[in-house]
Design a protein around this nucleic acid. Structure first.
Lengths: 227, 227
DNA sequence: TTGACCAGTGTACGTCGTACACCTATGCTC
DNA sequence: GAGCATAGGTGTACGACGTACACTGGTCAA
């Protein structure tokens, strides 16, 4: 065992994690468009096909990169003030995304969320629930936050099929998300099957912002107060 | 002149507009990933290189497609209530984007806005100004709307260089945007050069939403009122 | 010693965007 | 009408890309 790296030209073997880290670093350095399997392999001193022993294909590589980035977001701080908790976490997410400028676009291009992303969203929903927001309100609030949570738009929760009971395994791992999915399912007002009423969610956030703007206008708000 | 289409196998010549329309239709039908210059040429009964007589390259094709889509958004309705005007226009933009599901991602991938997009944003800013919002507030409001206006994120206004006076031609064509750029330039609080304080803009929208959520929570808001 | 297993290799295919040289019919000028 | 520039369409070719598939060599359990 001690001669693991004894034989002189013996490379440390690749693994999924090294591949993902290298991919993130390469995307940071040269942009997402310059990230090809061939360039990445070259960076790792390996032939392109070697990568496929560690990721199934490029899509899975991108999924893994997203997970790596989402993993950099700070866990929620403890504290009684839910707004402080959520605010801090979202600003952490923003810092991470600013550090990996390609990430927002990649996240948006994914078709389904990975478990890592689901866990992040679940934890975020948990912060709202802990702050005393109802499951119903939390649901709409999560939609309203939309891209500010991560760069996602509203069809995130369409993952659960159009009918039938939600995956029971989901509830075990992501209790808050399961709860939100449940409220969406049995208040199914305008949509026929399960899933959310995207139009309602859009207007919910839009009106919240427009009302906020009008309120600022009435009080002659100016950004100078911040200086 | 009368024999313009007389000679039997004479194709109607292509033009930029026909190319763009066909590209939009193809993307609508088969998804943006299936849109290649070769597939598009085939759809038009033409050899791939023929397209390059009408668009410089694929990037310009995508720009043109975005313009086509943005051109479908309704003009602002007239009316004294600025919230109604803005709301209606944004919902129109949303309808258009729902009709072209690929568009949001393409818009976000563009590096700089086209004149058509600038005109749309200028007109939107004009609606806020007409509603009595100050130039300062309008500026932040435009940022806060962010992706809800079209799918853009905040670095939109970074187009004007980091220093020097803004393009005088810009003011003529896009007076409201020029006005916003001006307010951003000479209140330059935390950023060194010109441009916006993206961090401030992000927190502005974030806090507006968080405060709105807290207010709903206090009044035990529930979405059932909508039913 | 054998043989299964696994990380890494090499070759090859089909697709992509597009540079470049070429053709050909249109329509302008004399 | 004769001559000719020009715009629109063609054909060939190149260098990327993602990845299927068959392989090789080194490790370790039996």
């Amino acid at each position: 065992m001690s001669r693991q790296e004894a034989t002189h030209t013996h490379r440390i073997p690749l693994n999924r994690d090294r591949v993902l880290r290298a991919a993130v670093a390469l995307a940071d350095a040269t942009g997402i468009d310059a990230l090809s399997m061939r360039r990445l392999a070259q960076e790792l001193g390996v032939v392109p096909m070697a990568l496929y022993k560690h990721v199934a294909n490029k899509e899975e590589l991108l999924d893994g990169m997203v997970d790596t980035v989402v993993g950099e977001i700070d866990p929620p701080a403890a504290g009684p003030d839910w707004q402080r908790v959520v605010r801090g976490r979202i600003l952490s997410a923003r810092r991470v995304l600013l550090h990996h400028p390609w990430a927002a676009r990649v996240i948006e291009s994914r078709t389904g969320p990975t478990p890592t992303v689901l866990a992040y969203l679940d934890s975020m929903a948990g912060s709202f629930r802990d702050g005393g927001l109802s499951a119903d309100l939390t649901h709409h609030v999560m939609h309203a936050m939309g891209s500010r949570l991560l760069g996602f738009s509203q069809e995130l929760f369409a993952t659960s099929g159009p009918s039938g009971p939600p995956d029971p395994g989901l509830a075990a791992h992501y209790p808050h998300i399961a709860e939100l999915a449940a409220t969406a399912a049995h208040d199914g007002s305008s949509t026929v099957g399960g899933g959310c009423d995207d139009q309602f969610e859009f207007e919910f956030a839009l009106d919240l912002l427009l009302d906020g703007f009008e309120s600022l206008r009435r009080q002659s708000w100016t950004s100078a107060r911040k200086a």
